[in-house]
Nucleic acid binder design. Structure first.
Length: 182
DNA sequence: TACTCGTTTCCTTATATATCTGACATAG
DNA sequence: CTATGTCAGATATATAAGGAAACGAGTA
């Protein structure tokens, strides 16, 4: 079972923004420090996803647990901007999910050194002294898997949930073949 | 050699995962 | 004063974004 733990999405408004003015208008939710970073952070609540807004009108939503949650936050964000007259509804250009970060559990321990050899050294990276997880980049799936000795797996880089699920399913099948004796 | 222009890298944010390190704290 | 304990911060992964800095190459 693959569980989505983070969704990164981006979108654009067809207008250039004066972030200084936006930060003044929405002082209670906006955190803007151009000396530190060019984007303005919009936080509705400590537990809600983060919106990073740029001068160009583009924005990023990070920290949502589902595509639906990202979409709801986007609506909330756009409504806020409309209410303050910062943008009009017509200036809303596009919005897409860019990355799904998922978690899965094989519920068995894994010998990562053996797995690296089994999967092939050209598709894996395992340096336990640098990082305890094995990095697996399958050729036939557009995402990256981080495999841990405990059997926990992090799947990241997927543009769709289905792609993360397919990558994990294929990985779980190969694990059973490669490490059947352990 | 000096300057310009294009490319590349880093920064920041979220999130799970696990391992080690360094900085503190508190107890004996 | 030393022992153990706790906690935060790297380490690595993907991804968007804009700006700054660094860097290589080409020209005068």
């Amino acid at each position: 079972m693959v569980e989505v733990v983070n969704v990164v999405a981006s979108g654009a408004l067809d207008v250039e923004l004066d972030l200084e003015a936006v930060a003044r208008d929405l002082d209670d939710v906006v955190d803007y420090d151009p000396e530190k970073y060019p984007g303005a952070y919009v936080r509705f609540g400590g537990d809600e996803p983060l919106v990073t807004l740029y001068r160009t009108g583009k924005y990023i939503i990070t920290g949502a647990s589902s595509e639906a949650e990202a979409g709801q936050l986007r609506e909330k964000f756009l409504t806020l901007l409309h209410r303050h007259g910062i943008v009009s509804a017509a200036e809303d250009a596009w919005f897409t999910v860019q990355n799904y970060v998922c978690m899965a559990d094989m519920e068995r321990s894994v010998n990562l050194s053996a797995l690296a050899i089994g999967l092939g050294l050209e598709v894996t990276e395992y340096e336990p002294e640098q990082f305890p997880g094995l990095v697996y980049r399958p050729h036939d799936h557009a995402c990256v898997l981080l495999v841990f000795a405990t059997g926990k797996v992090v799947i990241t880089g997927a543009q769709e949930t289905e792609s993360a699920e397919a990558a994990f399913a294929a990985f779980r099948d190969s694990i059973e073949t490669l490490l059947a004796d352990e």
